[in-house]
């Protein structure tokens, strides 16, 4: 492994460590009694005392921090204040639900967006281009939760095509086994949020691809490809698009972490039991161990995504040499 990658890994680890430290203090050092955010003042003093001890909150801060880091190193995120169950269990299934909703739609959106963007950018100045650019800008400008509400109003209420929300019909899979993910019922519930999210996520790659294709149209190597007698289609796919794909391919992995975080609103509208909805609920209940763990998870995803993006870049662009 080269020096460059070693340094990048070291940087990423440092970033993550700083983040988990900051998060520890953020949730404990903000104004007011730190335990008040953690333990409901409505409880009996005796009960509060027991809870304090149970969560280790009676110890000095530095000791708490030490325990926190030690526990994290074995993936122990503590217990949820709300349910009392281990945070890791709470988050695991929720993360899966989010990933199942977000990743496929993000990948679909990027694939579609780059192809449509390339074709549309290639025929620059066409009427379709003007209309699509306007539509996708408008779509990007609309809040995604509003689009979700509209889609529910129309497709679920008006046309009665899809369920209003949730991941499966209530009571159908009482013990929430993995079997539920393979059911038609799950897909039926997934369809509408998937469509809305895909449509919304489509805009960015579409607009980016269009403008980077527009920039390649005048490139000498594109003209040379045409002079070589390649068909328009080959010129577009093998040369113009191949090169314009670079910025997109490298933003995709970085976007994955953000998309998990960004699923908050869409999950709220569709009552989709994912990580986003969990975070909102947990913040509402002051269930900070859960929020903290969710944040860490997303931080890891984003940092990993950035690393993958860097790696993809060196893989796809031979000009990049990491010393």
């Amino acid at each position: 492994m080269s020096m460059f990658w070693f340094r990048r890994l070291w940087q990423s680890a440092l970033t993550l460590f700083t983040m988990l430290t900051l998060m520890f203090f953020l949730f404990r050092m903000l104004p007011g009694d730190p335990t008040a955010t953690v333990i409901s003042p409505a409880l009996y003093p005796k009960a509060q005392e027991i809870l304090r001890m149970q969560f280790g909150l009676d110890k000095p801060l530095w000791e708490q921090y030490f325990v926190y880091v030690k526990n994290l190193s074995v993936f122990d995120f503590g217990l949820s204040f709300h349910t009392g169950r281990p945070v890791a269990d709470e988050i695991g299934s929720r993360l899966l639900n989010t990933v199942l909703l977000v990743f496929p739609s993000l990948i679909t959106a990027y694939a579609l967006g780059s192809i449509v963007g390339a074709v549309v950018g290639w025929s620059r100045g066409s009427k379709t281009e003007t209309i699509l650019v306007f539509l996708s800008t408008a779509l990007q400008s609309a809040p995604v939760f509003w689009l979700s509400m509209l889609s529910i109003l129309y497709f679920s209420i008006q046309l009665d095509l899809f369920p209003i929300g949730h991941i499966v019909s209530p009571g159908k899979f009482p013990d929430e086994t993995w079997r539920m993910y393979f059911s038609a019922d799950f897909l039926h519930h997934l369809a509408l949020p998937f469509l809305v999210n895909t449509l919304y996520q489509f805009c960015f790659p579409f607009l980016l691809m269009r403008s980077s294709i527009l920039a390649t149209v005048g490139e000498d190597y594109v003209e040379l490809a045409r002079m070589k007698g390649l068909s328009e289609r080959s010129v577009l796919y093998r040369h113009a698009m191949r090169n314009s794909l670079l910025p997109l391919a490298t933003t995709l992995p970085m976007t994955l972490g953000w998309a998990v975080a960004g699923s908050v609103v869409i999950e709220t509208v569709f009552s989709w039991p994912g990580l986003g909805l969990l975070m909102v609920e947990a913040v509402g209940r002051s269930d900070y161990p859960v929020v903290q763990a969710a944040f860490l998870l997303i931080a890891v995803l984003t940092v990993l995504g950035t690393l993958i993006a860097d790696f993809l870049y060196t893989l796809l662009d031979p000009r990049i040499v990491n010393e």
Partner: peptide
Amino acid sequence: SMITQSALNALNPVQ
């Protein structure tokens, strides 16, 4: 066929 002006830009940089 053609020998182009700027060989750097005429060759596709990623192929």
